[in-house]
């Protein structure tokens, strides 16, 4: 039962950033590979303020929201300014840059040791109740994403991803949409980080390295880019696979490599299946 609750908690925690990322990369086709840059800024601001400076959780959460909004706005601006592949590489570089700062600014972030002893408060101590709160929040988040996906924002995003010039000629503001989707993905990162750190009671910088980002890409590509339902199902299945692989009887030192190979193959097969729709060709007359 405890393990089942753990799986449910991990699914809920991952759904926040994955669905936010789906809006950016899946629906908007914006070549963004720096979602974890937003997560690093959000979660470290929150935890440094609460655990090191002993500020109240509410105020720290507000500061983290401000910090992640600034990073999201910067990313939105960069996505408008750069070529798609240039932005893709820059977003990876930004994420690694933030990670390097976190790893080396030991007096504040405690470097590779991470931040330990994170209190569960203000969330309930009982695991069952905490997981229930996470499930409710995740359901609410899925509903929000579904509403956005089917609203005028979703349609405009889809039109813009297919052909930016034609979309803008129809009066769609590219700048407005990029700001909205990056802010939403930033909020997803913050919520995920807030739940995850309180759930595990520990923050490790290794949870925010590039392989973590690849997991988001995999969930979006496998689930059908832009589809809230598909990405939700893919996230559930991939988390179950990731956590469940340790029960197939492999020696402990083989689990990591086998997981890498398996997930690499899944990503490749997903791209192969979706090679015509992942980055759609522009329609011409």
């Amino acid at each position: 039962m405890t393990f089942f609750l753990h799986i449910v908690a991990m699914i809920c925690i991952l759904l926040f950033p994955v669905l936010g990322y789906n809006l950016v990369f899946g629906k908007g086709k914006i070549m963004h590979f720096g979602q974890e840059a937003q997560s690093i800024v959000a979660v470290y601001t929150l935890l440094v303020l609460t655990t090191q400076m002993h500020l109240s959780y509410g105020f720290s959460f507000f500061c983290a929201l401000l910090a992640v909004s600034c990073v999201s706005l910067a990313l939105a601006w960069l996505s408008l300014r750069l070529t798609p592949d240039g932005f893709g590489v820059l977003s990876i570089a930004l994420q690694l840059m933030f990670l390097a700062v976190v790893l080396n600014w030991q007096s504040v972030t405690r470097g590779a040791l991470g931040i330990s002893g994170i209190p569960r408060a203000p969330w309930p101590e009982a695991q069952g109740l905490f997981v229930m709160i996470m499930v409710s929040s995740a359901v609410l988040w899925i509903a929000c994403m579904w509403v956005i996906d089917t609203s005028i924002i979703g349609r405009q995003l889809a039109a813009l991803s297919e052909h930016p010039w034609y979309g803008e000629a129809q009066g769609i503001s590219r700048r407005r949409l990029h700001i909205i989707v990056f802010l939403l993905s930033g909020v997803g990162s913050l919520l995920s980080g807030a739940f995850y750190s309180s759930y595990i009671a520990f923050l490790s910088p290794s949870d925010y390295d590039f392989p973590a980002m690849i997991f988001f890409v995999m969930c979006v590509v496998a689930g059908r880019p832009g589809s809230v339902r598909g990405v939700t199902i893919a996230t559930i299945l991939l988390v179950v696979l990731r956590e469940g692989i340790r029960f197939i009887g492999l020696p402990i030192h083989l689990i990591g490599p086998v997981r890498l190979i398996l997930f690499g193959l899944i990503l490749f097969v997903a791209v192969w299946i979706r090679r015509d729709s992942l980055f759609p060709r522009q329609r011409t007359v």
Partner: peptide, 13 residues
């Protein structure tokens, strides 16, 4: 842009 994603998969493998 597709090889960007396929080579990420290759990197993992």
């Amino acid at each position: 842009f597709l090889p960007l994603v396929t080579t990420i998969a290759l990197g993992m493998i």
